[in-house]
Structure formats: structure tokens, C-alpha cells
Amino acid sequence: MTSLLEVRNVRKTYPRHGEPGRRVVLDDLSLSVAPGDVVCLIGSSGSGKSTLLRCLDLLEPIDDGVIELRGREISDPLVDPRVVRREIGMVFQAYNLFPHLSVLDNCTLAPRRVHGMPAAAAKDKARELLDRFGLGEHVDKHPDRLSGGQQQRVALVRALCTDPALLLLDEITAALDPELVGEVLDIVRSLADAGTTMVLATHEMGFAREVASHVCFLDGGRIVEEGPPAQVLGAPEQARTREFLRRVLPQG
């Protein structure tokens, strides 16, 4: 099976005390994502999950290694990041909707301006997606009038409106209270069932166990353990994975 996304030996550092390269955030990290995969990145804060997602969307330059999308190296300086991002959707923890645009305009901005879709078609498509995810009555409102769960669902729809080949979700439920988490995860679940390729950082272990095709446990910028959810979450081999799961899972 050819992979959609191939990450090989990626290294990412940040400066510490003004010295470049002193803080290693991703250390020789490799990952392979096949079409239809749902890869869940788990690990404590600062383990590098978010940084990895940002590097995949070329929002951060990497210090070494190779990232390939459909066999083409996208970490090449000669590749235009905007061309790559046309194929990738990203959703952030803090929604990051544009407060000055209505829900509908948030969702049609990129299809119209970047993908050259006619306004009517973009609107129809956005309306249909918003309807499907229970946001039909909010299309003309501005984001700040919606609840956190609704805003995050809009952010998902905004990412989906451009038909991305790959969806990156960065702890999209971390800012929501528990009763709103469900409505957002339901969408992700239905996307997974429809075969959408996703890489998501999450703290929801139950959800990862249910939806993931592949779970990666990150620690100190490395993938310490990876495999099917039943194995990584059910019978972890590494001591660090066991310790992490003991802390996040109430039953131990």
C-alpha cells in the first residue's frame, strides 16, 4: 500500500535562551499514513504532538528529515507551501475562526479565493456540510455568538469545504467542556467512517481507542510506541507508555 503521508527522521528544534537548536521538540521522528488511516497522536503536553502537526502543514520549518505527501517531498524549500496546504485541512485547538466573517463566509473564503470555486457553488457546499453537522440555523451568525462546540464544528466544516486529502486536528476538543466534546467527536467519527485520512492529536483516550487505526505515543519528541489502539492502549510494551496511561486513564 502506498502511503499518503510519509514522515522520515524529522527533527525540529526551537531556540533556548536565544541559542538556536538547543530545545529539541521533534527528535528523529518517522511516521507513515496510508489513505483512510486515522492516526492518533497521544502524549503529555510538550511531547511534540502539536509541533508535529504544524510541521506537517508547513507552518513551521523543520531542521532535518523529510516529509512527503503522495511521494513528493513537501519539505523542499522549492515547494510552495500554499500549493501543499490546498490539499491539507487543519483545525486548531482554539477554533481560530475569523470573528469578522459570518459562519458561512468563514467556510466559503478559501473555496472561493484559493480554489476558485464560484460563490454560489461554494455557498451550496458549505450550507450542505453545515446542515449535515447540525449547524444549519447558524449559517448567518458570527462565530462569537456560538458555543465552543458549535464553533469547533464550524472550524471542522471550514477545513472540509476544500475537500482536503488529509485532515490535521490539533487537540480540537481540549478547549471544550465535556458535554460539548461529544458533538465534535461525532463529526470526526463520521469522517473516519467515510474514509477521511486524518492525523489528530488528542487527549481523549476512549475516542482514540474507538476511532484510530493507528496510535502513536509521543514522549520527548519521539514516537516511543506505536501500533493498533488495542495494543498501544490495551497492552503497552513500554514502561513510559504504561506510566502515561496510568495517569490519564481513571481505571489505571
Binding site: 527522521n9 527533527r11 528544534t13 538547543r22 530545545r23 529539541v24 521538540v25 527528535d27 510538550g46 511531547s47 511534540g48 531542521d63 532535518d64 528529515g65 523529510v66 519539505s75 523542499d76 524549500p77 522549492l78 520527548g220 519528541g221
Partner: peptide, 25 residues
């Protein structure tokens, strides 16, 4: 974060990319 600061040497690919970037600059 306490990333292990091993003796990292940039790979051939990374060196090539740096050359490309400085050429672009």
C-alpha cells in the same frame, strides 16, 4: 522539554536544503 541532545549531524538532504535556501536568499 528535555529532548535528548544527542550528537545530531545534519543529513545530506538537510545540507542540500540549506544550500537551496541560501541560494534562494
Amino acid at each position: 522539554m528535555s529532548g535528548p541532545t544527542t550528537h545530531w549531524q545534519p543529513s545530506e538532504r538537510e545540507l542540500a536544503r540549506r544550500r537551496t535556501r541560501s541560494r534562494q536568499r
